[in-house]
Design a protein around this nucleic acid. Sequence first.
DNA 1: TATGAATGAGGCTTCATTCAT
DNA 2: TATGAATGAAGCCTCATTCAT
Lengths: 227, 227, 227, 227
Amino acid sequence: MSKSGFSGQRTPALRADARRNREALIAAARELFAEQGLETPLDDIARRAGVGNATLYRRFATREELIEAVFHDLLDEGLRTGEEARRGEDAWSALVGYMEGIFEGLAANRGAIELMTTAVPAGPTLAELRRHNHETVSELVRRAQEQGAMRADVTAEDLLFGLAALGRCVPSAAAVVPGSWRRHLALLFDGLRAEAARPLPAPPLTFRQLEDALADMAAPRGRAPQG
Amino acid sequence: MSKSGFSGQRTPALRADARRNREALIAAARELFAEQGLETPLDDIARRAGVGNATLYRRFATREELIEAVFHDLLDEGLRTGEEARRGEDAWSALVGYMEGIFEGLAANRGAIELMTTAVPAGPTLAELRRHNHETVSELVRRAQEQGAMRADVTAEDLLFGLAALGRCVPSAAAVVPGSWRRHLALLFDGLRAEAARPLPAPPLTFRQLEDALADMAAPRGRAPQG
Amino acid sequence: MSKSGFSGQRTPALRADARRNREALIAAARELFAEQGLETPLDDIARRAGVGNATLYRRFATREELIEAVFHDLLDEGLRTGEEARRGEDAWSALVGYMEGIFEGLAANRGAIELMTTAVPAGPTLAELRRHNHETVSELVRRAQEQGAMRADVTAEDLLFGLAALGRCVPSAAAVVPGSWRRHLALLFDGLRAEAARPLPAPPLTFRQLEDALADMAAPRGRAPQG
Amino acid sequence: MSKSGFSGQRTPALRADARRNREALIAAARELFAEQGLETPLDDIARRAGVGNATLYRRFATREELIEAVFHDLLDEGLRTGEEARRGEDAWSALVGYMEGIFEGLAANRGAIELMTTAVPAGPTLAELRRHNHETVSELVRRAQEQGAMRADVTAEDLLFGLAALGRCVPSAAAVVPGSWRRHLALLFDGLRAEAARPLPAPPLTFRQLEDALADMAAPRGRAPQG
DNA sequence: TATGAATGAGGCTTCATTCAT
DNA sequence: TATGAATGAAGCCTCATTCAT
């Protein structure tokens, strides 16, 4: 984490023990978020980290901050992966590979999924990642269409929506049969090939609409995830 | 409801007022489940029904029972729809129409979605429906493949998984742009056409595995939906 | 309480045990409010009443509701006392007597004081009482001035302000020497007699300004009393 | 502060940085006490001072010590003002002027008010000031009575009590209408003039009783101001 | 029987104070 | 020495579930 592009600057030289606690909290949160999702009780996280609950509050004033910290690496890595994908010659392959990489990370992580299907309360880093992700996908979609691999009547938003839908199911599928999501991802992509083109019954979502829809998914019972 | 195929045996002649209460509870739960999902506080349901909460417990010992009762009609209707679909000549069209019908119903009903993506705590009726649904889809898939419309390397489970994934997102998408799910459903089907066939990287889930995966989706934080 | 003018209608036939609990809660709150003021922890009140804390919340959704209930009798009695005072021939004596009556009630009750010096969060009944109190004082002041007993250059607001100031100190003074507040009240009134008239260095507060000032007193550190 | 009569002995040559910290803490506390009263969270004070909270504890073992330090200057000034007042020819005018001066200082300072109405947890300096204040008032009262301006049946304690009562309300009144307290102070004094004399219904408090009463006012909910 | 009521555990925060660097 | 950090005890509130009428 310390040598990643994003992080490092923000923490003004934390004391050794504090740093240890911080790391312990993040580690505990990472585990529990992965196992149980982003709504895990904060007290549980503190307990697993072996610190008092107030320590958690001192380090992370809000749940969002903790989430942001926990997923910093993942997100960071996401940026790198995105950049790399954009450099691919064959846009279609790059896109598929990019997505496989992401799903690989999601497969064992409920929290990451919730994050991916959540536009709402997750701080600037995540927003940045989402933006970057959208850019990556947009560019690859455009190029894949130019290269004749992807059907011309779909948009990046179509793909992103499908991926969000699938992504939400990945951990559960992976829990039952580890690699099974690869098959469903492949089927999703098969519907987006040039050869698969058929008239579509409704216009695509705009990016804004997509974000709103994802945000909505993140708010069970109309309220934000409680934190 | 009383004349449906499923119910009737189970309730041994309820007193008139008890019956009224039961109906009121179901109606209230139907509304709140649709609006807020299946985790709506039970007290809220009782209040909206205008009865005491203990009455709710007396009528429905567990949240599951209430869910089962609430969705009985829907499920019932699902059976009918399934039967009808099976009678279609053109299996592909029948399948598409069948699914559109289901999604239509889901679009405004959070609870129904949760149910659809939930194999766990929902009682025998729902199990029966799921079985029936599986049968319908299996048969239509088989026939669509025989008729050359659907690619031969996919299974009913593949389709059901994709539908579950999509279905979970339908209400949110519909909340933003009402008919938008039609586009994504179409894309899903486009990947299943005979022409779209490509080698797939993993074997399909068995029905049992699919059920387990769906069950897993229904258990946020590792526990059953809280009730 | 049941036969008072205000109450009685509002509670739609509470069950016997609930009524008992309600009374116990009110009694416990009355004691604790009197001893410790209006910010007593609600859990303490529940404990002293011998009920679970949630029972308190069921009966009184907010601290204000509880306050309102606790002081209902007192307030109610205040109305009666006010009416009676207005019927007095000698306005000055009536005013003095009225105030002595009020202070008598305040002497052992911190909560009542806080209430009296609080314009803010206390529900409609208290607002009504304050209005009524203001009316009583206004009328008696006017008549006492007409009768030549009270100096003409003071207003009801002047008196109310002085009474609020004094009232806040009554319980503490009474805790040390029971009747001592009578002396200070007398001194306050002595400054309001016709003979005491002297040019005053600033205009009186309007009623609205008085209310604002009292409200301000009720909000330590800028926030409302926390409940 | 360093050259005041009181301080200086107690701090055995503080190191330069320590001294700076001490001053910063006092300055921060002065501001926050004035704005929010004496119960301001200590961490807030340390933060505003730009030092660690433990530093605060090292410098001031208890909240009282900090209070004492903060109000040292004010008190110091109080002594001077008192001395000056005692030198006045016309005792009545001197008394009025003295009080106006004090109220002027209180009007924008919640903490000072709380202090003035607090006999308890404020250390020797404050005790000294209170003693001095009492002396000043006693002497002026005696002389004003001798000079025939003040009624003979009141005591310094009567006046002090009234002033405490009024003083507690000054900031709130001043928050609404800046100079309004002058009117109420004038009314208070009008009741103490020789011409206003009337039989009083109770004996005056002794100094000790007055102190106890003021101490009582300072203890909301029966406990000391929380620190 | 139906019901309102009661419960207690659990989640979130805040703060005075002590500890370790 | 000065400091940031850690702590744990309260306080508030919500809900599923059991109890008593």
